[in-house]
Design a protein around this nucleic acid. Structure first.
Lengths: 159, 159
DNA sequence: CGAAAGTGGTTAGGGGCCAGACTATCTGGT
DNA sequence: ACCAGATAGTCTGGCCCCTAACCACTTTCG
């Protein structure tokens, strides 16, 4: 497969209303993002934790105190239903446990266990050292450029 | 949320072995890729087809003839088991049907139905016109830069 | 020829993600 | 005090994705 992915030679003729450069950006963005996510999953596999689980542990660790699932869902930019599922698997692995909120009985507080806290550190270390590896072919200048370009797209996409 | 996503001020102190620029690239890559995929799903929703299903229809359309699932799985860079599932939902929607291979009895050939072929076109049109929208904030020069940078990362990630 | 190795598709089981529905609980305004 | 609306967490049912195991069929090779 070509890298980066390119549109076919007659793209402009087949899709006159489209933009070849935009399509190439979108395809390569999706592809590279997917590759990176796959690599994260691979790097975390030996730790016995999934990317989603690792992110949740990091959020709890950063907060420095037990948090309700709703807080996690906002940070992760993911639905509350999804957080319920991720927490279930973290509980199964003994990295986290749920306790009722002392005053608001609608809520639950998610606590990091000892091994959950250790795992949060291990995840950060693993992921951050992998990232340096992945981005090696880019100079500092190119990395700054890439981040800027991605930021522009995000601003346009998020509103 | 900041865009692009930035690492905290004391990142270098907390993770001395890591690279802040690499981490920012990775975070924004994952985030932007995810945003784009979400937008694709959103754009396709009115058509009643999912991104994975849309890609399969496109592969069949491009091939111009019935294809075995294995071929689709290689093109999609996805496991055969996943293709089985995606085909099941396409069959349910009447966009595709399976026929036994005439000579090799291990295989199946996936045929586009009439409405599947129409859907393949609709998907392409919808996605390509959305892409132009998403990339609007980038000049032609910036788009070329972005594609090049992503290509470098891919080359480093794939082997 | 006939067994071993390879290939193609599916199934089973584990996650992750979502929308929508449901329950329990809080809060605000009358 | 009370009820309507907001909020928190969960469950259901879909879809996507993976690995491993399985079965049927082909190919290869002694």
């Amino acid at each position: 497969m070509e890298m980066p992915v390119r549109v076919s030679r007659d793209f402009a003729k087949t899709y006159p209303y489209a933009s070849a450069s935009a399509t190439e950006c979108a395809m390569n963005l999706a592809r590279t993002g997917d590759l990176v996510l796959g690599r994260v999953a691979l790097a975390l596999q030996p730790l016995g934790v999934t990317p989603a689980g690792g992110l949740v542990l990091g959020i709890l660790k950063d907060a420095g105190r037990p948090c309700p699932p709703n807080y996690i869902s906002e940070r992760l930019i993911v639905s509350r239903a999804t957080v319920t599922g991720v927490l279930d698997t973290l509980v199964k692995r003994g990295l986290v446990h749920r306790e009722p909120h002392p005053t608001d009985r609608r809520m639950v507080l998610v606590h990091l266990t000892k091994s959950g806290a250790r795992m949060a550190d291990a995840v950060r270390n693993t992921v951050h050292s992998s990232e340096a590896e992945w981005m090696r072919p880019l100079s500092e200048r190119e990395r700054a450029q890439l981040t800027e370009l991605l930021g522009k797209i995000q601003k346009n996409l998020v509103p």
